[in-house]
Amino acid sequence: MAGRGRRIYFLTPTFTPVGGVVKIFDYVNHALSLGYEPVVCCPETYKPTMPLFRNERFSGISPENGIRFTDLEKAAVGPFELAFVSWPEHYEIVERRMSRWTLHEQVICIVQNVRWANPKFTGGYALRLLTRPMARIMTNEVVLEAVKPYLNTSSLNEVIPLGHDVGFFHRERSGGLGSPVRVGYTTWKSDVGDRVAGILDGRGFEFRAVRDPVGWDELRDLYHWADVFLATPLAEEGFYMPGLEAMAAGAILLTPDAGGNLAYCRFGENCLEVALDDEKSYVRALEALRRMSLEELERLRQNGYATAARHTLEQEREGFARFMEHLEERLKRAG
C-alpha cells in the first residue's frame, strides 16, 4: 500500500465530536486506507462509549483493531515518521519532540479555518506558523485565499475540498413548507435563533433548538424535522458543517457570510443570505420564504442536494492520496 506502514501521529485536543475533531478522525481513516499506521494522541482517555466512537464512521478506530492511543505530549516524530496537526498550539508539542534528522515537511498541518489569517487568533501564533516550512492541507479555496499571503511557498501547500458523510443526513423531500413552518437551529455559537423565535414563534412558525453539542443522530433528527434551518455561525468559520448537513436533509438554509461557508453557499441559488447575528434580518428572510412559490423553494432545495453531493468522504480520501504521493516524493528527494 501507499503508506508502507509509515507511522503518523494524529494530535487532537479532545474526543468530543466537534467539527475540527471529526475532520482529524476522517483523516485517520484515510491514512488507514492508504496503508499508514495512525497513532492517536489526546489528553483524554479512549473509551468506546464516547459519542465520537459510537458513530459507525469511527467505531473501527479502537485499540481492539490495533490502533494505538497515547498522551498528547508523547507525540514524537522520528526520521521515518509523520505528524498530523490541526490546532496551532499542537505544533509546539511536535516541534519539541522532532529528531535532529526529521524534515520540516514530516509535519502535516491541516488548516481548517480562515481565522488562521487573523492576527488576533492565538495571539498571532497561527499566522506566524503559516510562514514556517511544513506540509499543509487547506480544506477549501476560501481558506487558501485567506492564508495565501502568509504561506511558506517552499513547502507543499494543497487544497483538499472538505468531505463529509452527507448521505447520513440525507432526507428526500419536495414541495412547499409546513404549516406552521418548522424552523431548526443550534445555540452553542449564537443565541440569535432564540431571539428570532421570541419574535415569530406562534405566528405561523414553530421553532426547535439543539442547545448543546450532541451526536449526529440528534442533529439529523433536527434537520429532518425542520423545513428551514437557521445557520448561526461565528464571524469566521472554516466551513460551518451544519449548513451543508441541512442542505443534505432538504431543509432550506438561511445563513450569513461566515468566511469559509462561502466554499459551498451560493446566496439565492442554494440558500438565502441573512446578516450575521441580526435577528431582524432572519425574521425578514423567514417571512419572505413563506411567500415564495413552490418552484422557488424546490430550486433552492434541489441546488442544496447537488451541493451536498459534491462534498463526499470518497473525494476527500482521493485528494489525500494524491497529497501523500506528492509528499512522499518530496521527502524521498530530500533524503
Rank of each mutant, 00 (worst) to 15 (best):
T139S: 09
Y264V: 05
P233Y: 12
E325H: 10
G202Y: 02
G175K: 04
V40L: 05
G163S: 07
C41A: 05
A248Q: 00
L313I: 05
F320H: 03
F25C: 06
A263M: 05
R96A: 15
L219H: 07
T49K: 13
E329L: 15
K23L: 15
L32A: 13
V183T: 07
F53A: 08
R208D: 00
E316F: 05
F121S: 09
N261G: 10
T232S: 13
V274G: 08
D227K: 02
A263G: 07
R4N: 15
T70M: 14
I24A: 15
N65G: 08
P233T: 12
V77D: 09
N29G: 14
F15K: 06
A288M: 10
V114W: 05
E172K: 09
K74P: 09
V181C: 01
D227P: 02
R7P: 00
P43C: 12
G167T: 11
A76F: 09
F205L: 01
L272W: 00
L144H: 11
V274T: 10
P119R: 15
N29L: 14
K189Y: 10
F121C: 09
G335Q: 11
R68F: 03
K47S: 14
Y46K: 03
E245I: 14
R57H: 15
I110H: 05
P233Q: 14
G66K: 02
A31Y: 07
E81A: 09
T49S: 14
P63Y: 10
E218P: 10
T45L: 15
L222I: 03
V214H: 12
D165Y: 07
Y305S: 00
D194A: 12
R136I: 00
V94I: 03
L286T: 00
E145T: 13
L230Q: 06
D257H: 06
T70N: 10
E236L: 09
H164Q: 14
E245T: 13
G78V: 02
L151A: 08
L222M: 04
V107P: 01
R266L: 07
S293Y: 02
A231W: 01
V28C: 11
S99P: 02
H311R: 06
S154V: 13
A248H: 00
G184F: 02
D191E: 14
G243T: 00
L222T: 03
E273P: 07
P161L: 12
G259N: 05
